[in-house]
Write a protein that binds this DNA or RNA. Structure first.
Length: 257
DNA sequence: ATGACCGCTGGAAGCGGA
């Protein structure tokens, strides 16, 4: 079972890029973030024509997340992260596919830092940690996939001091990610490749793609039952080099199910 | 680097993203 995650940065603006990637790489499950469309604007028909059924939550202009599954409909289990009834941002969707619970996450960016946006990021992270704890305790196979907007360690970003104040690299952001891992989750891509660059994002600005100055922001966390089933994984870097690309590339893993 | 990008809203600059 091949599971992928991609921050698409507007699904309708990049629909041809998305369909081209799905056709070529054929993930069984694809988690998407930053749909940037209201619920009714989601291109469900085009995706169905390409062989994918979907569940999604969306809002105008910002955020929005989806789970696609090839050849079968994902079974929706949650469309929001528990813990704050006043949070209306569409950043979490969860569904079961072939016996695996898939959570698609778009964690808040948190810039500028410090400030209310960074506080929202950390509060959202705490809600995720609480929910993830419940999922671990449930003893079921779970993949937490998505754009965490966290650079976990210094080796997950090109060498620079210019981003020292950025929310993505703050000690509080990294500490929250480590606390999540310590519940028993496995950082799948880092388990496969313990050291070295594993970029999934290159800023549009400053020609970062051509300089290959990227960051690792998109992660797969595996529950204890799934970690031993991890076979392979990587980043589809070619997608970032296409015309009209998102600033993220897809990351993927395969599980022996 | 107060950076040179990209997309959105609204109908101009300003915001958000990372």
């Amino acid at each position: 079972m091949k599971i992928a995650t991609l921050n698409i940065n507007n699904i309708n603006k990049r629909l041809e890029n998305l369909l081209g990637w799905l056709e070529k790489e054929k993930p069984d499950v694809a988690c998407l973030q930053e749909l940037k469309t209201e619920h009714r604007g989601f291109p469900a028909g085009a995706l169905r024509s390409s062989g994918y059924e979907a569940v999604w939550v969306g809002e105008r202009s910002w955020n929005g997340v989806a789970i696609l599954a090839r050849g079968q409909p994902p079974v929706l289990t949650r469309s929001e992260l528990p813990g704050d009834d006043h949070d209306n941002q569409t950043r979490y969707v969860e569904a079961a596919v072939r016996g695996v619970l898939i959570a698609c996450i778009y964690l808040p960016n948190g810039n500028p830092q410090p400030g209310p946006k960074f506080a929202y990021k950390l509060a959202w992270f705490e809600r995720l940690i609480a929910h993830a704890s419940d999922l671990i305790k449930a003893g079921i196979p779970v993949v937490l996939a998505g754009d965490y907007n966290v650079v976990p360690t210094p080796q997950d970003i090109y060498p620079t001091r210019s981003l020292d104040k950025n929310a993505l690299v703050q000690p509080a952001s990294r500490e929250a990610f480590q606390r999540l891992l310590r519940q028993g989750w496995t950082d799948a891509l880092r388990k496969l490749q313990p050291t070295g660059p594993l970029w999934t994002f290159w800023d549009y600005k400053f020609d970062r793609w051509n300089a290959d100055k990227g960051m690792r922001l998109d992660h797969f966390l595996l529950s204890p039952q799934l970690a031993p089933l991890l076979l392979d994984g990587g980043v589809d870097r070619w997608v970032r080099g296409e015309e009209n690309a998102s600033d993220h590339a897809p990351a993927w893993i395969t599980l022996k199910l």
